[in-house]
Design a protein around this nucleic acid. Structure first.
Lengths: 210, 210
DNA sequence: GTCTATAGTGAGATAGAC
DNA sequence: GTCTATCTCACTATAGAC
């Protein structure tokens, strides 16, 4: 419930009264589950990052080549941003409300995740399969374009989230000018149809106070 | 002042007391310049969109080919997001607080701007110089990756904003797999060194109440 | 054009009963 | 584990003097 309200109205514009009403208890009852409003947000943000990090880690364990690895990172990132749209929207929007220790903790997790991307890009460049001028810039560009999916995706649209993920993975390969044997690397030719298995589903997040 | 506070803390977390204190007057004095807090935000968002739209329009008047046009859109978008970072950050973050008529007005301006991008991509595809699976998806990806610059750019970094803009324009061309005469189109070879002239500077935005 | 003063509302959080 | 009741504080906005 807090997730939906934070995503729709924003953290600051959401009162604990609304959250409590949404789950059918009184504001005071909320403080049995969380010590503060910020702690509710913190728990949501940790969930979102955990999803991204664990899926990425599992995929990177199985895949070797930079092009497969980058495609997997992009695919799984987009897939998660579509399937858990609100969760990632809050993650990408409300970081600034975190203060002190909470901010440091989430910031560190985010850096950990982004380091996966940069390392994959860097390896692709040194192996000669990617051609980018600046690894850091390419990392920002790729992460942002995939993250933005949470801002416009709707399950109602024509393409399934799996199709969208595949096309974003292909665009990611294009952005880094991935080439093997003198020709461009296309996502469809990598044989990564089963990528979605790395994004295991746990319990649904939208129920309960969070 | 309002711009800095909105960008740093967010619109909802910023009180009119802070804005007033920042410009050295009392909260009541603010209402001489704006009828409401939301109107201050509205004015800022209109400024940001006006910058993007007018620069894009001027560049598209002068340039013909899809690859030049797309490169110009990306370059100018990134340039503005770097030079007026806070202005665009607020634009990209606080849209949801607008209600009713204000939301419709800003939404329409945003659609107008994004239509430029989609039309350029579409033309590139029908002319056979771009190769993308889905114009709409490519438009989202390109806009998001360029917009994201406002989230991480700092003038302190190594590269100038003009260099960063050039590299993003090049990545944009890569993303759509731009090709001429059997070879990839590179930004450096387009001879668009003077693009920055389309981004004229008006009065500085950060002073005054806004 | 800016002030003082204040109305009116809602916020996050706590105490302590049950 | 959830309640009622209430604390304290900050908010946007207005009225009307100067």
């Amino acid at each position: 419930m807090a997730l939906r309200l934070f995503a729709e109205r924003g953290y600051e514009a959401t009162g604990i009264r609304s959250i409590a009403a949404g789950v059918g208890i009184t504001p005071a009852g909320l403080y049995h589950y969380a010590a503060s409003k910020e702690e509710i947000l913190l728990a949501l943000m940790e969930r979102g990052l955990e999803r991204l990090i664990s899926a990425a880690r599992r995929a990177l364990e199985d895949l070797e080549s930079p092009e497969e690895r980058l495609a997997a990172l992009a695919y799984l990132h987009v897939l998660s941003h579509g399937r858990r749209r609100l969760l990632h929207l809050v993650n990408d929007t409300e970081f600034r409300v975190l203060g002190g220790e909470n901010r440091a903790r989430i910031g560190a997790r985010r850096d950990e995740y982004e380091a996966y991307w940069r390392e994959v890009i860097r390896r692709g460049v040194v192996e000669g399969v990617f051609r980018v001028d600046d690894v850091r810039l390419a990392g920002f560009a790729l992460l942002q374009m995939c993250t933005g999916v949470a801002q416009w995706y709707s399950p109602e649209g024509g393409l399934s989230i799996e199709e969208i993920s595949a096309r974003f993975a292909d665009m990611a390969l294009a952005l880094v000018r991935a080439e093997r044997d003198g020709g461009p690397v296309r996502f469809a030719e990598l044989g990564l149809a089963g990528l979605a298995r790395y994004a295991e589903e746990g319990a649904p997040w939208e129920c309960g106070v969070g």
